[in-house]
Design a protein around this nucleic acid. Structure first.
Length: 341
DNA sequence: AACCCCAACAACCGCCATCAT
DNA sequence: GATGATGGCGGTTGTTGGGGT
């Protein structure tokens, strides 16, 4: 088969199906045989990449596909539209704060060994990690360009790396001389998890003070000034102000560092009930059973938190979706191929 | 409405290691 | 041991969609 017969570019659904059948039959190997048998006009490498990055089971992005699949099976266009609206915030599959910390820590440890780092992140591929890191580096570089005033004369320095791109602090974490400085850094970004999980560290940064110091309706993200409310922003020319994560004030979730992420543990039945009973009038005031991952209290199953504004929980799409059990949609029949619609 | 910028993602390319012949 | 095929991995580029102007 000549090179001109090799197909490139985006994969089609039927190609994916052929690839799935091959893996189901032969396992994730013999990639080159797919082309030699005439099953696909793709190279073995391309097939392998497609499988590893998109079709392999237990990828996080598949969970979202399952949700859409479930929506379509309800055969209600109105319902589908509603869920698509909700899912709009779910399909990004952004890295959670915990995943970000893990990547930052492991990158410091392993360097750009994305495949190695990915093994520490269930459901993530090396490509995911690589893309995340690349985006982060670009973001940091852009912020540093706009936030650091350019000296009139170039300063002598052996280190040509911009400050934000230098190595992250070690386990000891940054030395902060004042509360103002503490507020100016996001712990979730700069501190390795070993540092974050150190009880002494938690005491050091005076969490009660931080609770009232700022309000951020989002999961703490990497340097993302666009997420900082205008009134909380500080001129980048003088200081980068990164808000600390907001801690739930009206619900004691135990460990503050865990509660900031607010993982939602949705039992399968809860999830189905939730969407199954959803109506248009519910959209503005949806009640969802929320149970933090770390919570072992007796009220676990009965706790209801209203997702409106009665409680200022920094609920995020990621925290909503990341803790879905991967097999929660296993009982649903496979969605027919779009070509069969 | 058109344009631009940017983030996120998907896919390709090149290099290298491993293995079979 | 040499060589080619294959697969793994990291770097890079292209595409797309959202948001701002």
């Amino acid at each position: 088969m000549s090179d001109s017969m090799i197909k490139k570019g985006p994969w089609k659904a039927e190609e994916d199906e052929v690839l799935r059948k091959h893996v189901k039959k032969c396992g994730p190997r013999d990639w080159s045989s797919i082309r030699s048998k005439g099953l696909l006009q793709r190279t073995g490498k391309s097939c392998r990449l497609r499988w590893v990055n998109k079709l392999r089971p237990n990828l996080k992005k598949l969970v979202h596909l399952f949700i859409l699949q479930y929506c379509f099976q309800l055969s209600s266009l109105f319902f589908v539209l509603i869920i698509c609206w909700v899912a709009k915030f779910l399909f990004g599959v952004k890295f959670s704060a915990e995943e970000e910390r893990t990547v930052i820590e492991l990158q410091e440890q392993f360097g750009n060994k994305w495949a190695t780092i990915a093994t520490y992140l269930p459901g993530r591929t090396d490509n995911d990690v690589k893309n995340f890191w690349s985006s982060r580096q670009k973001k940091l570089a852009r912020i540093m360009r706009t936030s650091v005033p350019q000296p009139s004369k170039p300063q002598k320095s052996n280190n040509r790396e911009p400050p934000a791109l230098q190595k992250l602090p070690s386990v000891e974490g940054p030395k902060l001389s004042s509360l103002a400085e503490e507020r100016s850094l996001s712990m979730s970004q700069y501190c390795p998890s070993s540092y974050m999980n150190n009880p002494d560290t938690i005491n050091m940064v005076q969490w009660p003070e931080l609770v009232n110091s700022t309000s951020l309706p989002f999961e703490p993200d990497l340097l993302q000034p666009e997420f900082i409310p205008n009134e909380k922003r500080t001129c980048f020319g003088s200081q980068i102000t990164l808000p600390f994560p907001q801690i739930p004030l009206q619900a004691d979730f135990g460990h503050p560092l865990e509660s900031q992420i607010l993982p939602m543990k949705l039992e399968e039945s809860d999830f189905l009930d939730f969407f199954g009973q959803l109506s248009a009038s519910d959209i503005g005031d949806v009640q969802v059973p929320l149970v933090p991952a770390s919570w072992s209290g007796p009220e676990k199953s009965s706790e209801i938190i209203t997702m409106k504004r009665e409680i200022d929980v920094p609920l995020t799409p990621d925290s909503f979706i990341d803790d879905f059990p991967m097999d929660m949609f296993d009982h649903i029949d496979p969605l027919p191929s779009p070509f069969n619609w």
